Amino acid sequence: MKIKWKMKTWMKIVLLFITLGIVFSYAMFQGGFVSWFLFYSFTPFALYALLVAFYPMSDFKVERTFNGDSYSVGDKLEITISLERKVPFPLFFFVIQNDTTITEKSEELILYPWFKRGISVIYTVENLHRGEHIFGDITIKSGDFLGLILKNRVIRDSKTILVYPSYIDMVYRSIESRYEQGASASQIRLQNDSTMVTGVREYQPGDRFTWIDWKSTAKKNEMQTKEFEERQSHDISIVLDRTPSKSFESMVKFSASLIRTIIRHGGQIGIYSVGKEHSIFPIRGGEEHQHQLFYHLARVKADSNTPVYTILDGDKAFYQQAAAIMIVTSTLSQSLLDSSHKFTKRTGSVVIFVIKENGERVTHEENALHDQALRNGTYVRFLYDEGFRSALLGVKQR
C-alpha cells in the first residue's frame, strides 16, 4: 500500500514539473504580458505543491482523549484531538478523519493550521446510546492550494468506551412470601435453616434423606422428619428476554434499576442471559458484582432466537437454587405462562415484568393471560417507564 502511494505521489510530482515546463514554454514562445503573468502566477503554487509533497506527515504527533472514564445513556461525550509537530511548515488546510462506531458516518474535521506547531480540536457527541463503542484509526490529510498534491497518514489509535444503561432509583420493599394482586398470590420459596431444628413431623415425599429423625421414627414406627426454622429467601435471578423487541432498551434499563436497588439494600441477584452469547451470572451481592452485571448490560444485544419460555423448561440450574425468578420481557404469551406455572409448582416463584413502550397498549389477549396467571399463582405486571420506580411496591408480606 505504501509503495503504491509513493508511486502515485512521484507521478504527481513528475506531472507537476511537466505542467510547469509547458507553462514556461508557452511564455517563452508566445511572449507578451499575459503568458508571462500566467507563468509567474502558477510558479508559486507549483513550488508550494512541491514542498508539500516532500513535507513528512510523520512530523505530527496525534493524541485522542475523552472527557471521562465511564458513561451512561444520555451523557455527553467530549473528544479532544491534539496535534503537535516540530517543523512549522505552513499548511493551508488539514483534515482529521475520526473512525468510530458511535456515529453512522466517520467524523471529519477541517482545520487551518498554517504555521502553528500545536493545535487541538474538541467535538461532542450528545445523548450517548448504550453499548460498546469503538474508536478506530485517525486519518490526517493535507495538500496544496490547487489539490495537485494530497497527502495522508493513518495513526493506529484504537480505543473503546462503554456506555452503561441508565437506571431509576426504585422504591424498595424486600421480597417477602407473597405477591398479592386481587384474590390471587404467588408463593415465594422458603429456605430451611438446617442448623435450627424446631421439631419433627411425618415424612413427606420430597424430604431429604438426611432430614429423617431416626429416634422418633423408631419410637412411633413411622417415618419422621426433622422440622427446621424457615427463613425467607430474598435472592433474585433475572431472566432477560433477548429476542428482538422495540422495548429492549427499556428492558435493559429496568433490569439495571432492579439490580442496583436490590444490591444497594443488601440483597443478592444474578442474571440469566441467552443470545448469541450464553451468559449466566451467579446470585451474589456487593459493588463488584453490580459492576459485572452492569458491564454485561452495557454490551448485551437483542440477538436471541430462543423464546424466553424455553429457558425455564430447558435449564435445570433454576431448579437447584432457592431464588425467586424474575422474567423481564416485552411480550406475554401462553407458552411463557405454562412454563412459569410448571416452575412454580415444582420449585419456587416466578414474577413476570412485561415492559411496554410509552403509547403501546396492553392487548386484550395479554389482559386475559394476566388474569389466568393470577389464578395459577404467577405474578404478572405490565410496566411503562414511569412505573419503574414503583415496580416493587406490589411485594407484600403474607
Score class of each variant (00 low, 15 high):
H133E: 09
I155V: 13
I149D: 06
S166F: 05
P165C: 09
I140T: 02
H133Q: 05
I168W: 08
I138D: 09
I140V: 02
G136Q: 09
N192E: 15
D169R: 12
H133L: 06
Y164S: 05
Q191K: 15
I134W: 11
I138Q: 02
V163R: 01
S166M: 04
I122F: 09
V200H: 00
V200F: 04
Y203Q: 06
K151W: 01
S158Q: 15
S177Y: 10
S186D: 02
S194H: 15
K141S: 02
T139W: 00
N192M: 12
V197H: 05
Y179K: 10
Q204F: 08
Y164G: 06
I119Q: 05
F145H: 04
G131K: 05
D137R: 02
S142K: 03
H129P: 14
H133T: 09
V197M: 02
N127I: 11
I134M: 11
V125T: 08
S142C: 09
S166P: 13
G136R: 09
Y164R: 12
Q204H: 07
G182A: 01
P165E: 08
I138W: 02
A185T: 14
Q187T: 15
S184L: 13
L162R: 07
Q191P: 07
M196S: 14
D157W: 08
I119E: 07
E202H: 00
S120Y: 03
T198M: 01
D144C: 01
S177D: 13
K159D: 14
G199S: 04
Y172S: 04
T160P: 12
I168M: 14
N152M: 08
Y164D: 04
G131D: 03
I188D: 13
S142H: 02
V125E: 15
I188K: 09
D157S: 11
A183G: 04
I140C: 00
R173A: 10
P165R: 09
I161L: 02
D193M: 11
G131L: 05
I119H: 07
S166E: 06
F145P: 06
N152T: 04
G143L: 05
S177Q: 14
D193E: 07
H129A: 15
A185K: 03
D137C: 05
V125D: 06
V171T: 14
K159M: 13
R130T: 01
I155Y: 10
S194N: 15
R173E: 13
I149F: 03
Y203K: 02
H133G: 03
K159T: 15
M170V: 12
M196E: 12
S174C: 13
P165K: 10
I149S: 06
G136N: 06
I161F: 07
R178G: 10
N192Q: 15
R201L: 00
L162I: 10
V154R: 06
R173P: 12
A183N: 05
D193A: 10
A183L: 11
Y179P: 06
I168D: 14
D169N: 15
S166V: 11
I175A: 14
I188A: 14
E202N: 01
R178C: 10
I119G: 00
A183C: 07
Y123M: 09
S194P: 15
Y172G: 08
V154C: 08
